[in-house]
Design a protein around this nucleic acid. Structure first.
Length: 352
DNA sequence: GAATAGACCCCTTTTACGTCA
DNA sequence: CGTGACGTAAAAGGGGTCTAT
């Protein structure tokens, strides 16, 4: 079991495994805060069952996805506010994107690749135990007869003729190395891919082929869609992180302002009453980082003075800590937990 | 062990499409 | 109704890494 603390892309799993790909991922330095408590498994997961005849690539991809997906299962505590927890903890806070809201009205088979005979009667890939899509299979063939709206009907017409031609042309152009016309995915296709993405944000070759078959897309299209989807996830997460950091900055600014004021008051108090608390000057020290006043004296009056010189909230919220457990060796062990959004309190290790 | 090919991923950019004023 | 600006998604291209040969 490992505890991970990440300052980075929270959509990514933490590096429990030793996969070299994880080294790759460390180059992504999106800011974010999250903690994860996870268990590293050495055994095979259920996804791998009955898959002994995989090609090397598939096995590598499986391993890859296992390090990324299975190890992404750890309990992940995202410290980012306003981010609803998703069931797969992939870090995308928006549950439904509507960027392609009208795409579905154009019918389903916009990008349909004429299925080969092998594809038409091949259900094995889809129903394979490795299939990503097995848990939410949809018979997309029903869309081939057109949609419900006028536009759908128009596009259904296109599906019957033009789209077939478009797809053929696209394939031909692709083969000839010419530019292909870019076509939007239908709403159903997008939704299906979205569901698949929630299950696994990366695909192994089998999953890719199965998805492509199910959606009547080219595997390359599925692959590109997942790439773009991961990019969108990361972008969204970055935006959330930025917002969070902004709030952290505001909080810290406010805290700093408060402490400056407190310091000013203490200095004024010291000036107006130089014999206040009868403290030797050398016992008043200040934490260089947080500018909190503390003492290093060993006598009782010193401890009391230390309590008195810290913030009122400190002494009122945890007075017993100061009196019953004087931290002689650690003058900056604050008795009140403070807000440290970026890291552990810089004294925390010594205090604990 | 070094070189190479193939596959995959990420990042950036381009391009096509849809919406709206 | 036509048009240009703008946003978004699909796709391409380049670079990096890893694995198998």
């Amino acid at each position: 079991m490992e505890l991970g603390l990440s300052l980075g892309d929270t959509s990514r799993p933490f590096g429990y495994g030793s996969s070299s790909n994880e080294k790759n991922r460390s180059k992504n330095k999106a800011l974010g805060f999250c903690m994860a408590l996870g268990v590293s498994f050495n055994g095979r997961d259920e996804e791998e069952e009955g898959d002994d005849e995989k090609s090397s690539d598939e096995q590598r991809a499986d391993n890859d996805s296992r390090t990324r997906v299975s190890s992404a299962d750890p309990i992940q505590l995202s410290l980012l506010p306003l981010v609803p927890v998703t069931r797969n903890q992939t870090g995308f806070p928006w549950s439904s994107e509507n960027g392609n809201s009208d795409a579905g009205s154009r019918g389903f088979d916009v990008n349909r690749v004429p299925p080969s005979a092998e594809e038409l009667d091949d259900g094995a890939a889809i129903s394979s135990p490795n299939s990503t899509v097995s848990s939410f299979q949809i018979d997309f063939s029903m869309y081939r007869n057109g949609g419900s709206s006028k536009r759908d009907a128009e596009m259904a017409g296109l599906n019957e003729g033009d789209n077939e031609r478009t797809s053929s042309r696209a394939s031909d152009e692709e083969e000839n190395g010419l530019a292909r016309k870019k076509l939007r995915l239908s709403k159903e296709q997008s939704a299906f891919l979205e569901e698949s993405f929630k299950e696994h944000n990366t695909l192994n070759p089998k999953q890719k082929v199965a998805l492509a078959k199910q959606l009547n897309l080219r595997p390359r299209q599925v692959e590109v869609w997942f790439q773009n989807r991961r990019a969108r996830t990361k972008l969204k997460q970055t935006e959330v992180d930025c917002e969070y950091l902004k709030r952290c900055c505001e909080t810290l600014t406010e805290e700093n302002r408060r402490l400056q004021k407190e310091l000013q008051e203490l200095r004024a108090l010291k000036t107006s009453n130089p014999y206040y608390m009868q403290l030797p000057a050398t016992t008043l020290t200040m934490c260089p980082s947080c500018e909190r006043v503390a003492t290093t004296t060993n006598n009782n009056s010193g401890s009391a003075a230390a309590a008195a010189t810290t913030t009122p909230t400190t002494t009122t919220t945890a007075p017993t800590t100061t009196t019953t457990n004087p931290q002689k060796s650690n003058p900056f062990s604050h008795t009140k937990p403070r807000f440290y959004p970026f890291s552990q309190p810089h004294h925390a290790s010594a205090a604990s």
